[in-house]
Simulated assay, not measured.
Amino acid sequence: MTIEGKHIIIDAFMCDSTHLNDIKFLEEMCKKAALGADMEILYCYFHQFEPQGVTGVLVLSTSHLSIHTWPEEKYVSLDFYTCGTLELTSQVEFLIKELSSKQAMVYSISRGVSYPQLIKCEELGS
């Protein structure tokens, strides 16, 4: 068993604010991203804030996926962490597309490594 993993951090800007306040949409979107990577969902919890905003987490057998939204700012933060060598590029692109983000900063960090690393960041947008 390897302890190495991949941690993807997404800052998504200029998103569709309607989606960012729709708890059912966000929960289904996150589940589709995890299941699309053949990940096992162990636990799911989402919370709707008043007057707006959603926070949620999927506990996965390989780690987690979390989301926090600010509809008034059209902003979403996501963390997608998985153990092993699974490539998450298609899931990241799926999440950004579903949120209708016009600009996203995607950070990739290797976890479980005992050497210095350069954190990779790329800008994605429509």
Rank of each mutant, 00 (worst) to 15 (best):
M1I: 11
M1G: 14
T2P: 14
E4Y: 10
G5Y: 02
G5V: 03
K6M: 13
I9E: 11
I10L: 04
F13E: 14
F13Y: 15
F13R: 08
D16M: 08
S17R: 06
N21M: 05
D22I: 08
I23K: 07
I23A: 05
I23R: 05
K24S: 15
K24Y: 15
E28P: 03
M29A: 04
C30M: 10
K31N: 10
L35V: 15
G36W: 04
G36F: 05
I41D: 01
L42I: 15
L42T: 14
L42W: 12
C44W: 02
Y45M: 12
Y45N: 14
Y45D: 15
Y45W: 11
H47I: 09
Q48W: 00
E50W: 01
P51I: 09
Q52T: 02
V54P: 04
T55S: 13
G56K: 01
V57Q: 12
L58H: 01
T62R: 09
S66P: 03
T69Q: 05
E72T: 09
E72Q: 11
K74M: 14
Y75I: 13
V76H: 01
S77W: 03
Y81I: 06
T82L: 03
C83H: 00
G84A: 13
E87T: 04
E87Q: 08
L88C: 13
L88A: 14
L88Y: 10
T89F: 02
S90N: 14
S90V: 12
Q91C: 12
V92L: 07
V92D: 06
E93M: 14
E93Y: 09
F94Y: 15
F94A: 07
L95M: 00
I96R: 07
K97H: 12
K97M: 09
S100T: 09
K102L: 12
Y107I: 12
S110D: 12
S110C: 10
V113K: 10
S114D: 00
S114A: 00
Q117K: 05
L118C: 06
K120I: 04
C121I: 15
C121P: 11
C121D: 10
E123M: 10
L124W: 02
G125V: 07
S126Q: 05
S126W: 01
